[in-house]
Nucleic acid binder design. Structure first.
Length: 470
RNA sequence: CGGGGUGUGGCGCAGCUUGGUAGCGCACCCGCUUUGGGAGCGGGGGGCCGUGGGUUCAAAUCCCGCCACCCCGACCA
């Protein structure tokens, strides 16, 4: 008789499956304050690898890391009208500290536009100071009424980039460059998550931005997740915080700005895009452990063979971990690694060694094969590359199958029950967008007919990608 | 804000109707046997039963208040 499934099957109850994976794969726990989370080592390892890969790309795009404070004077938030209105409901405000009531309340940052701009106004003096490209790795707090671990938590970890440019065109181009070269490139090639890049509608735009661009991914239940955003801020904050520079022609000009961010929400996206009924599936390019070598039983020279194999894999620049917990039943260990989603398992036991082989188990396609000792390193290296691609291809095919072109608002609503719909923006319009909102369906982004990212929502022939979202 | 529900070892629950001071599964600890797909057997540790009051010889159980959390609706995006 089959054992009860380790996880609630996705088809039975997707949200429950998501909670089960997070708990059984030891990714995170809920914190004591509602909406907060404790990120456990395996979950944090995913985030650390994401940070490393994103950070490399941010630096390649010319930005430098800096750090700005957690606490912001409340008055700063109030300087930009749309910004304060957008964030007011989710602010955590400190009014009492050091044993007494504060003269001016302090806001725990929900994002750092205001405090960073207060320093830009000091640092940006001349066109020679531009562009100024900064990035801040930090935690932020947005009080959430309906939290979901990793996807929408009261406190989360992220990076926020903030830049100043001499011209509107430069700022726009940079916001777009981050979207393409930092975010989408990372998501598709490292996370193996295909994304649709597009422009947010006025309704979905960041509070205080002129335009917001986003990367949208489809989860296995057909819902959308905004994986990252990049904003063209125009001169809104520059004017509110007096960020001016002297141009080469001797004029005082307001700087043109951008801001952009990705967060621990990506961990949730990774889980829901690739996970299956056996647990997480981590893409090889991301995983902090690419191959786990299992000592099936410590006898007949198994341990020595494992040590030699690990050295060889290290030499091939593969991230390897040994599982020599021989006191724990084999099946338990195998299930644990599957839940955690490590891409490859190499099982070494006396039976294998007698044949001069090892057993290679691939988590992503779910295959198990016997490979000779001489070929392991080559086989493993090839499997890591193939499975990275397979994961991406699978996710892309799933998204395409679940996305349909429609020409009426009713059909769009129908399609959103199981996936996404593409509908001409001229057909949908703001009225259609409002109507869909009553059914918890939103415009994820606007794209051009050829899939390109629009410069503005006023371009003709735009397509709205609509769906339900997290 | 309105309606409904739930609070009992780390987690999930039973016990409450018909009061007699707590039990099950998983997890944990010890021993032996196991170990190629979630181990078996034996032994063991752990609970102010959300909280404050009341009734009673006696309250997890009955009565009243409070708190927290969950679901549905409304509101907001």
């Amino acid at each position: 008789m089959a054992k009860a499934p380790v996880l609630t099957p996705q088809a039975q109850d997707f949200p429950r499956w998501y909670q089960d994976v997070i708990s059984k794969a030891e990714l995170a726990d809920n914190g004591p304050v509602r909406g907060t989370m404790v990120i456990r080592p395996w979950g944090y390892a995913l985030w650390e690898r994401m940070q490393r890969e994103v950070d490399d790309r941010i630096k390649a795009a010319g930005a430098q890391n800096a750090y700005f404070p957690l606490f912001i004077p409340q008055s700063y938030l109030q300087r930009e009208a749309d910004h304060v209105e957008g964030f007011a409901p989710e602010l955590a405000v400190v009014t009492y500290a050091g044993g007494k009531e504060l003269e001016e309340p302090i806001v725990v940052r929900p994002t750092s536009e205001t405090i960073i701009n207060s320093f830009f106004s000091k640092w940006v003096q001349s066109y020679r100071d531009l562009p100024m490209l900064l990035n801040n790795w930090s935690n932020v707090v947005r009080w959430e009424l309906r939290p979901r671990i990793f996807l929408r938590t009261t406190e989360f970890l992220w990076q926020e980039g903030h830049t100043c440019h001499a011209t509107e065109a430069d700022a726009r181009a940079y916001a777009r460059r981050v979207l393409d070269e930092v975010y989408a490139e990372f998501m598709e090639n490292v996370l193996a998550v295909p994304v649709v890049k597009g422009l947010k509608t006025a309704k979905e735009r960041f509070a205080g931005a002129v335009n917001s661009l986003s990367c949208e991914a489809m989860m296995r239940d057909g819902k959308a997740l905004q994986m990252g955003t990049s904003h063209d801020l125009g001169q809104n904050f520059a004017k509110a915080f007096d960020v001016q520079y002297l141009s080469s022609s001797g004029q005082q000009e307001y700087a043109w700005q951008t801001s952009w961010g990705v967060s621990t929400r990506m961990v949730g996206g990774l889980i829901m895009c690739h996970g299956d009924d056996a647990g997480l599936r981590v893409p090889p390019a991301l995983s902090s452990i690419q191959v786990v070598v299992m000592v099936v039983r410590d006898s007949d020279g198994v341990r020595a063979a494992v040590d030699r194999l690990v050295d060889e894999l290290h030499t091939s620049a593969i991230r390897v971990e040994v599982d020599d917990r021989v006191d724990t039943p084999f099946g338990r260990r195998a299930v644990d690694w599957e839940l955690k989603g490590v891409p490859l398992r190499v099982e070494v036991g006396p039976r294998d060694l007698a044949e001069g082989t090892v057993t290679v188990v691939r988590r992503i396609p779910g295959t198990k094969t016997s490979v000779t000792l001489a070929e392991v390193a080559r086989d493993v290296t090839g499997a890591l590359v193939e499975d990275q691609q397979a994961l991406y291809d699978e996710a892309l095919a799933r998204r395409e199958d679940a996305t349909i072109d429609v020409s009426t608002v009713d059909d769009a609503a129908q399609a959103a029950a199981t996936g996404w719909a593409r509908i001409p923006w001229s057909t949908l319009g703001v009225e259609g967008e409002t109507l869909l909102a009553t059914q918890a369906i939103s415009v994820r982004c606007l794209i051009r007919a050829d899939g390109g990212v629009p410069e503005s929502a006023d371009e003709p022939d735009l397509i709205a990608v609509v769906g339900r979202s997290y």
